[in-house]
Design a protein around this nucleic acid. Structure first.
Lengths: 316, 316
DNA sequence: GTGAAAGCGCTAACAA
DNA sequence: TTGTTAGCGCTTTCAC
C-alpha cells in the first residue's frame, strides 16, 4: 500500500527530500529534476501523507460536512454537491450524520473544527447562540440557514414561496392551506413568516417533516375548505398525496398539492409533484467555495417553482 | 478555535506534555493529576490534533467510505450505518462519492488508503482485477459485492430472491418477469444467475437501475404474458409502478410488482411496494467492525421479503 | 537549483 | 508516577 514516503522517493531519485517536496508541490526545481522525481513518485505509487503535510502547512486539505440525516434526500443532494466540488479542488470531506441530535452536532463541530480546514454545517434546529459559540466564523459556513455573525448559503425561500402562491392563485385557488414543519426549525419559521402575510393562505397545524407527517396533514387539509395545499417539504407532500389517494380525493382535481425542495422523489410520485426547487447540490459547492475562498458575504441562491401534475385549475 | 495544544494544557497544569498525553489517552497517571489535566483541557477547549497523533501511532482514527452515488437511497442508508457506527467508536469518516466513475473510484482508493486506517468500498461496477490491485486486503472491506481475496459484507441475495419467488408462486403466479440491471454490475449478474434457474421466471431485457429504467421496464412487461414482475431494485420498481399506472394497468390486480433493497421510498409508493429487504445500514456498521477488528471471514447478512400492497393473488 | 536542518503536535520509549 | 527525548512524514527557512 502507500507505505512509500518522501524518503523513499528521494533515495531512489538521488536527491534530497526537500527537492522531492518541491518537485511535487510546485517549488523551484529544474524541469529535468521535477520530471525525474515525478516519474519515480508515480512508479513507487507515492501518496503524500496529508496528515504530515497538514501538520506543517497548517492546512489539512480536508473539510467537514455536518448534516442531520443523510437519508433525507435533501441532505443527500447537498452532500453530493459538496463532495463533487471537494473532489475537483482535491480536498477530502469528513461527513458526520448527527441523526438529528443537537449534542452530536456540537461535538462534531468541535472535533471537525480542529481537524479540518473548515466545516460546512447543516443545522436546522440548534439555537443561534449554541452555533455562535461553537462555530468559528472564519472556518464555518452555514447551509440553508442564516445566523447573524456566521457566513451562510441559503436559498431564496421567500421568492420561491411567492412563485408557488402566485401559481396557485393564477389557477383560481383562493383558499390555500399551509402545513408547516417543526417549530424549532429555522426553515419552518422562515416559511411561516412569509406565508402568514398572504391573505389567501390558511395556516394549519405543523406536522413532522416526513412522509408520516404528510399522512397526518392529509386529514388536516380535508377537514378544511382549502382547494390547494402548500406542504413544508416534498416528503410531507408525498405523504399528503398518499393520504388523499387513500381517501379517494383526486389530485389535482379536488386538491392541488405543492411541495418544497424538489427532491428527486418529486418526479416519482403519483401524480408528479409540483415543487419549489432549491439548488441543493449547487448550494453545497457554493458553500465550499465560500469556505475556501473565505469570502464573507452571505450568499442567496434563487429558488424556482417547478410545475408538474399535482397542481391544476380549481374545479368547483 | 482549537488552537490549543498539549503544550498549553501542560503549562497551565504545571506538568509535562507527556503527562498530559497520558492523562488524556488513558496512560499511567495518578488519579489526581488525571483529573486536574482533564479539567484544564476541558476549560481550554483542548481538542487533540488527530493528524499529529496519527503520525506517531500509525492510526489516524479515520476511515474512508467510497460510494458510487450518495443520492441513491441504498447508498445513503449504507453511509448512515457507517457514520453512526463510526461515531460510536470515535472515528471520522471520509466519504467519497465517485459519481459512478471507476477512475475516480480507484483514485479515491489510493488517496484514502494512504490517509485512513482503512476503507469501506461500494463498487458495483469495477473489475475484480482492478479492485485487487488497488485495494489492500488488510485495510479494505467490500460492501455488497464479493471479490475473492478481499474481505466483504454482502446480503444473502439468493435467499431473498427465493423468498420473493416463493411468495409470488404461492399467490398463483406462474409467469414471473425479471427486469435486470446493468450487466457490468456484480449484483445484477448475481441476481441473474439465481433467477435463470427458476423455471417460472422469464428474463426480460436489462434496464438502467433507475426510475427511468423502470418506465422502460413497464412496457417490456406489458408486452409479455407475465402476471408478476421482479424488478432489479426499488427504483426500477417505482418506475414500473408509474408506467403501469399511466397505462391503466391495475397493481396488483393485473400485475404484481416486487422490488429489491427495500429503500425508504418503498413505503411511499402507490401502492406500497413489496420488496426484498437487505440490511443496508447494518451492513455498513458490520463492515466497519470487520475493518477495525481485522476479522478475515466474509460476512453474509440475511435478506428478507417485506410484503406490501404491490403484490397479490393472480386474477385470471 | 539544491541540501541540511528545524520543526508542526503529538505519543512512546527510556530514565529518573 | 512523572519528565526528557526522540521522532512520525512532511514542508520550509536558510545556507550554499
Amino acid at each position: 500500500m502507500g507505505r512509500t514516503t518522501v524518503q523513499d522517493v528521494a533515495r531512489e531519485a538521488g536527491v534530497s527530500v526537500a527537492t522531492v517536496s518541491r518537485a511535487l508541490t510546485g517549488g523551484t526545481v529544474s524541469p529535468s529534476t521535477r520530471e525525474a522525481v515525478r516519474a519515480i513518485a508515480a512508479r513507487l505509487g507515492y501518496q503524500p501523507n496529508r496528515a504530515a503535510r497538514g501538520l506543517i502547512t497548517g492546512r489539512t486539505g480536508n473539510l467537514g460536512l455536518i448534516v442531520p440525516d443523510l437519508r433525507n434526500p435533501f441532505f443527500a443532494d447537498v452532500a453530493k454537491g459538496v463532495t463533487a466540488r471537494a473532489r475537483a479542488v482535491d480536498h477530502g470531506v469528513f461527513i458526520t450524520d448527527t441523526d438529528e441530535d443537537p449534542v452530536a452536532e456540537l461535538e462534531a463541530l468541535a472535533t471537525l473544527g480542529r481537524n479540518t480546514d473548515g466545516v460546512l454545517l447543516c443545522s436546522p434546529r440548534s439555537a443561534d447562540a449554541d452555533l455562535l459559540t461553537a462555530a468559528d466564523p472564519e472556518r464555518t459556513v452555514l447551509l440553508h440557514r442564516r445566523v447573524p455573525g456566521l457566513p451562510s448559503v441559503v436559498a431564496d425561500i421567500a421568492g420561491g414561496i411567492r412563485q408557488a402562491v402566485r401559481h396557485l392563485i393564477a389557477l383560481g385557488h383562493t383558499r390555500i392551506a399551509y402545513v408547516g414543519g417543526p417549530e424549532d426549525s429555522w426553515a419552518a419559521r422562515q416559511r411561516l413568516t412569509v406565508l402568514t402575510e398572504v391573505p389567501e393562505v390558511l395556516i394549519l397545524d405543523a406536522v413532522a417533516p416526513t412522509f408520516e407527517g404528510g399522512l397526518v396533514a392529509g386529514d388536516l387539509v380535508l377537514a378544511g375548505p382549502a382547494t390547494a395545499v402548500l406542504a413544508y417539504n416534498d416528503l410531507v407532500a408525498l405523504g399528503l398525496l398518499h393520504r388523499l389517494a387513500a381517501r379517494g380525493v383526486a389530485v389535482p382535481d379536488r386538491v392541488s398539492v405543492v411541495g418544497f425542495d424538489d427532491v428527486s422523489l418529486a418526479v416519482m410520485s403519483h401524480p408528479p409533484l409540483t415543487s419549489v426547487a432549491v439548488p441543493k447540490d449547487r448550494s453545497g459547492s457554493v458553500a465550499l467555495d465560500l469556505l475556501l475562498g473565505r469570502t464573507g458575504a452571505p450568499v442567496v441562491l434563487p429558488a424556482s417553482l417547478v410545475v408538474r401534475a399535482s397542481s391544476g385549475v380549481v374545479r368547483p
